[in-house]
Design a protein around this nucleic acid. Structure first.
Length: 660
DNA sequence: ACCATCAAGG
């Protein structure tokens, strides 16, 4: 009788959907990414548990059924019903992204049980179609089929992906009524879904606290939720609790713990978990290892990140991207050379790689290289990637090519708030205050809800362009009209706005009237303004406050000394200098870089060793003469030349032209 | 048939 099982099973399959089955069986076998071995996608589930993983080489249908009949453990093979086989087929279609095939098989079914319905819900969810998942879920209810724990956790995934806030709450209630809320998968899916929503962490935490038996999954879910919500401190705290309660150390718990340390910028904790990963042998797991490199970089320990990276025996695309992003974050030119290393190993960059490299170009003002990267990204078909486009807008603006920035902005089809913000900030830093304001109003016209950062952008644009009244107007209306409440950094921005234009008294009054304690950004802005307008007394007061807040701030001492110098308070000036020297502080080495043809050259102040530096220095001297002449000419025309920051940029540009 | 880990923007 049992010998019949295999062939019978085949017959059943064929009765349901003969055509599809042939296709499904005859095609290339699916590769298991973890083992590198091959499974039949459709048939694996039917026999998988019976044959210890049932690892098979390529088999035809005939061979497969033959093997079934010869199986050593035929008692474990169960005949499957036509409906179950069809459900497998649906799942297989979904797994390969053939949504319409899956749908057709489902529609042809003479009857549908909860498993078949759930396959539809979860199939749509895993193919990033939460709306269709929800539609199936509703249709299931209309058909009078009651969902089970599997359905509930699947639809919760869809609620998370589709940001169905109310749907999540409704399904939560449903899960209580069905009595499935207590099941591991359901409450973990609930935590995950809630955590994705604005202020959803409270709900997520409540679900978490109600769990009586917390699995490793529950813990990783809640810690990951805190990390995603941006609360690194809470994530690290939760992480400690997780280990205290003796959760197992597996690749999941370790990697999320490392991410939590990174989010909290807690290097000590990160090192501890790194050690634990080494000890348990999980450090060779790629996700774990990649997050270790990332953690070191986010905890400002680039050298440890580099060390770890160089010691990794295996690297994947994420490893490279993580390290490139780390170097970009640190503002190092090495991000670009690492890209070359990566390409030399025939690893193809993806959109993450491009975003980091473009960001590096922005930081390093590599316009020419940035343009090439832009071209490369377009050629590789990353035309629609949000992150890349926003990075490009930012890059062109930071490289001084605001018009190109605008061109990119205009051709972006789906502009996000970030795109608008990048463009507004781009205008702002170049002093195009009017354009920034115009763009901001245009954005509001499109119905985009502004956030704190875009307000900061437009207000600082006003500040740079001297549009004080306009800036104040934005500041005063942001909370009342748009419900965006200013934080301490905003006050710094507005103090800067008032201060730059010399309205220091108002700036000081604003600080007095602040609803919370002013932070260093506020006093820093005031201090800068005092320096600019040579207000010694107020500046000294601000500098003192600054030093109370950040006694390590070498920059404050520098500005303070400048203020004393500006007020000719030489005794005080000398005291500050002495204090700085006494604390053993040295100013960071000044460094400039320019892009010459395809290379970025770095110059340290006073450096003469390399031939290019010597040549550049020569050209610079020559240019100095010319500029002196120009300046004299300007003076003779009565123009103002303050010899300030502008000269640095123009020098670089001129040197590029001179050498190129 | 369901839940959890690694990389990107202002």
């Amino acid at each position: 009788m049992r010998d019949q099982v295999g062939p019978q099973c085949t017959e059943n399959l064929c009765t349901v959907a003969p055509t599809n089955l042939q296709v499904s069986i005859g095609e290339e076998l699916k590769k298991d990414p973890h083992e590198g071995r091959y499974f039949y996608p459709v048939l694996r589930e039917n026999v998988g548990k019976s044959e210890e993983g049932s690892v098979m080489t390529k088999l035809t249908l005939q061979q497969f059924t033959g093997q079934l009949a010869l199986s050593q453990k035929p008692s474990l093979i169960r005949p499957i019903s036509p409906l179950a086989a069809a459900t497998d087929l649906i799942k297989s279609h979904f797994d390969s992204g053939r949504l319409s095939d899956a749908r057709r098989v489902f529609d042809e079914l003479p009857e549908r049980d909860v498993v078949a319905w759930t396959a539809m819900v979860s199939g749509y969810t895993s193919n990033a179609r939460p709306e269709d998942a929800w539609a199936s879920f509703r249709a299931m209810a209309s058909a009078g089929v009651s969902p089970n724990a599997f359905t509930v956790s699947s639809i919760l995934s869809a609620c998370r992906a589709g940001e169905f806030t109310e749907g999540t709450a409704a399904v939560h209630a449903l899960s209580v009524r069905l009595g499935v809320k207590g099941q591991t998968h359901v409450h973990n899916a609930l935590i995950y879904a809630y955590s994705e929503f604005h202020r959803g962490m409270l709900d997520a935490l409540q679900v978490f606290d109600e769990i009586t038996h917390r699995s490793a999954v529950s813990w990783t879910t809640i810690v990951a939720a805190y990390v995603r919500s941006g609360d690194g401190g809470a994530a690290a705290q939760m992480c400690r609790r997780m280990f205290q309660e003796g959760v197992e150390l597996n690749p999941f718990t370790l990697s999320i713990a490392i991410r939590a340390s990174a989010a909290a910028e807690n290097l000590a904790l990160g090192r501890q978990i790194h050690a634990a990963a080494n000890k348990t042998g999980h450090a060779i797991n790629l996700p774990v290892s990649n997050s270790i490199a990332d953690m070191y970089s986010r905890c400002a320990s680039l050298s440890e990140a580099r060390q770890h990276f160089s010691e990794m025996p295996r690297k994947d695309l994420i490893t490279w991207n993580t390290m490139i992003a780390a170097l970009d974050r640190a503002g190092s030119v090495d991000s670009c050379s690492l890209l070359l290393d990566m390409l030399s190993q025939s690893i193809q960059p993806n959109c993450f790689t491009f975003t980091s490299i473009i960001s590096s170009c922005a930081k390093l003002s590599c316009l020419i290289f940035g343009q090439q990267v832009h071209g490369a990204a377009v050629r590789r078909g990353f035309r629609e990637n949000h992150h890349i486009f926003n990075a490009l807008i930012d890059m062109y603006a930071k490289c001084g090519a605001v018009a190109d920035s605008r061109r990119v902005f205009d051709e972006t089809c789906r502009r996000s708030l970030v795109s608008w913000t990048s463009m507004i900030i781009g205008y702002g830093v170049h002093g195009f205050g009017e354009e920034a304001i115009k763009l901001f109003n245009e954005m509001i016209g499109y119905g985009i809800q502004p956030d704190a950062i875009v307000f900061m952008g437009v207000i600082s644009a006003c500040s740079h362009a001297g549009l004080v009244e306009e800036g104040l107007e934005f500041f005063n209306s942001m909370e009342s009209r748009y419900g965006v409440s200013p934080d301490a950094k905003f006050y710094g921005c507005v103090v800067d706005l008032l201060g730059r234009s010399g309205r220091l008294r108002e700036a000081a009054e604003l600080i007095e009237a602040m609803p919370f304690e002013p932070d260093e950004s506020v006093f820093g802005a005031l201090l800068g303004a005092c320096k600019m307008h040579k207000k010694v007394e107020l500046g000294v007061a601000a500098g003192r406050k600054m030093l109370n807040l950040m006694p390590e701030g070498a920059k404050t001492y520098v500005i303070l000394s400048n203020i004393y110098a500006a007020g000719s308070e030489w005794d005080w000036f000398a005291d500050v200098m002495k204090m700085m020297r006494g604390m053993g502080w040295k100013k960071d080495v000044g460094m400039s870089w320019i892009e010459v043809r395809e290379e970025v050259c770095c110059f340290v102040a006073g450096e003469q060793s390399s031939p290019s530096a010597a040549l550049a220095s020569e050209v610079l001297t020559l240019l100095g003469f010319h500029m002196d002449e120009e300046r004299d000419l300007l003076f003779s025309f009565g123009s103002v030349w303050d010899g300030g920051e502008k000269s640095y940029i123009s020098n670089s540009v001129v040197i590029v032209e001179a050498l190129g």
